[in-house]
Design a protein around this nucleic acid. Structure first.
Length: 139
DNA sequence: GCCAACGTTGGC
DNA sequence: GCCAACGTTGGC
């Protein structure tokens, strides 16, 4: 199973919105970046991801699960863009801030640190375990 | 609120 | 196909 990170600006779509969707989950739509789209194409049902709040908060705030593999993005007619559906799994007991991640040398190669603008990113097993530990949250 | 970095677009 | 210009993102 693979791990991912989904980034969102909380004023646009935040953890609370995701949580409110419950079991049904929601499309991760609006991505207009090839790299991010390609990662979504690689996702499988059951893969887990971090839910990251950008801008003011800059924290990993929860864990989500992929519940539908890549399909056309319903917010555009442009067939190039696809998205997956994700469901909130559990919130982080303690959100892990970008500052904490940057301060942890074992996380220096996280895509979040290397390429902060990419909105959908892969996360390695080691990174997954460590960030969950930092958030006092079960992986 | 600013600005650097990046990705995309479009003219040549 | 290259590259300059532009728009957007997101950290600071």
């Amino acid at each position: 199973m693979a791990y991912w990170l989904f980034k969102s600006e909380p004023n646009t779509w935040g953890w609370d919105d995701q949580l409110a969707k419950g079991e049904a989950g929601e499309e991760w739509d609006g991505v207009r970046n090839y790299q991010a789209r390609n990662f979504m194409r690689e996702m499988k049902i059951g893969d887990l991801g971090f839910f990251y709040h950008s801008m003011k908060e800059k924290s990993v705030v929860g864990i989500v699960k992929v519940i539908a593999e890549a399909h056309p993005d319903s917010t555009t007619d442009d067939p190039r863009w696809e998205c997956v559906d994700i469901q909130a799994v559990r919130p982080f007991v303690k959100p892990v801030t970008l500052d904490q991640i940057k301060a942890e040398e074992r996380l220096a190669d996280m895509v979040l640190v290397r390429n902060s603008r990419l909105s959908v990113q892969p996360v390695t097993d080691a990174e997954w375990q460590l960030v969950c530990t930092m958030g006092q949250t079960k992986p």
